[in-house]
């Protein structure tokens, strides 16, 4: 559905996207993940034909975004960053206007607008002025707009930013429900969000794609070196002695917690999962264990890890 080859975008003096290549298949939900300024929005703007690329080619549904821009635009639903809308219009009026702009006939646009309003939960506010709606509703109007012409490809730039947890959940469910019939490309900087919605993630950093895989595989790669936190009630000296004796523990750090508990942060060697072993040890020594967790990687950790791996590759090769 999307083929990006060697895409580069340079603004005056600054490279926003540096020679990225990726492909997205029909029916996939792909997450573009990265911190602010990684080049996500620029990539999406180029995909949606709003900006030209400095070099490289981008094809959407077989059409070149630069040469067959109108054909591409017919096939995409794009929700830009910050979801700009005409605030003075009413919800239904706005969606009908957008449907007509996207080339739907009079009867068809009416029918589609009713469908997407139903789908996005906007039927109750259809006569309200967009400027007076809450941010969550506005976001849904933006989504409804992206869906209104039933496009093959839906591009959403940070669709859940600034929403409260309930609204985020409903937007996520909506996006998940699009899988299969539509191809969806969403950008986010929240890792769990991408894990929840996407069948594949592309991690962008400083204009490059650092990793592209399923969320499970990425987690598995990262989980290898994740720390285990254990809060145990036991004498410090004994804890130190035990941790030193376990060969799988590379490093440990003990700090006092409330009461007689101590908080131990244990770093494993070679990607071992330390949890079963720690549980066995506490039982063996008769200690009280009140917490045992393996820290999940935050997005920052992943960036750090992937960038470090890239640098190592460079040094080795």
């Amino acid at each position: 559905m999307i083929e990006v080859t060697d895409l580069t975008k340079r603004y005056a003096g600054r490279t926003a996207v540096a020679g990225i290549s990726f492909a997205v298949n029909r029916g996939e939900i792909v997450g573009l993940l990265g911190p602010n300024g990684a080049g996500k929005s620029t990539t999406m703007r180029i995909l949606s034909t709003f900006l030209p690329a400095t070099s490289g080619t981008v094809r959407v549904a077989g059409y070149d975004v630069f040469h067959d821009s109108v054909e591409v635009r017919r096939r995409i639903g794009f929700m830009p960053e910050n979801n700009p809308l005409y605030l003075e219009m009413r919800v239904r009026e706005y969606l009908k206007f957008r449907a007509r702009l996207k080339g739907l006939g009079w009867a068809r646009s009416r029918q589609r607008v009713d469908t997407v309003m139903e789908q996005c939960g906007l039927t109750d506010v259809r006569r309200r002025i967009i400027g007076q709606l809450s941010k969550g509703y506005r976001q849904r109007v933006g989504l409804a707009d992206a869906l209104v012409h039933d496009p093959e490809l839906i591009i959403l730039d940070e669709p859940t930013i600034g929403l409260d947890p309930n609204q985020i959940r409903s937007v996520r469910q909506l996006i998940k429900s699009l899988a299969g019939n539509h191809t969806v490309l969403i950008s986010t900087h929240i890792l769990p969000e991408a894990e929840m919605m996407c069948s594949r993630m592309l991690i962008m950093f400083e204009g490059k794609i650092l990793a592209a895989d399923t969320p499970e595989n990425l987690q598995r790669q990262m989980a290898g070196n994740s720390q285990v936190i254990a809060e145990i009630a036991a004498p410090v000296a004994e804890l130190q002695r035990v941790w030193q004796e376990v060969p799988e523990i590379e490093q440990y750090d003990i700090s006092a917690a409330e009461g007689e508990f101590y908080r131990c942060a244990l770093t494993p060697r070679d990607g071992h999962d330390l949890r079963p072993q720690i549980f066995a040890l506490t039982r063996e020594h008769g200690w009280t264990l009140r917490e045992l967790t393996r820290s999940r990687h935050s997005l920052e950790d992943i960036y750090v890890q992937v960038t470090r791996r890239n640098e190592e590759d460079k040094e080795n090769g």
Binding site: R45, S48, T49, F50, V70, R73, R74, I76, F78, P80, E81, N82, P84, L85, Y86, R98, L101, K102, G103, D145
Partner: peptide
């Protein structure tokens, strides 16, 4: 300035 230009220019209008 409001960003709706992006919305407008990514629809199939010339």
């Amino acid at each position: 300035s409001s960003g709706t230009y992006e919305n407008l220019m990514t629809t199939p209008v010339s």
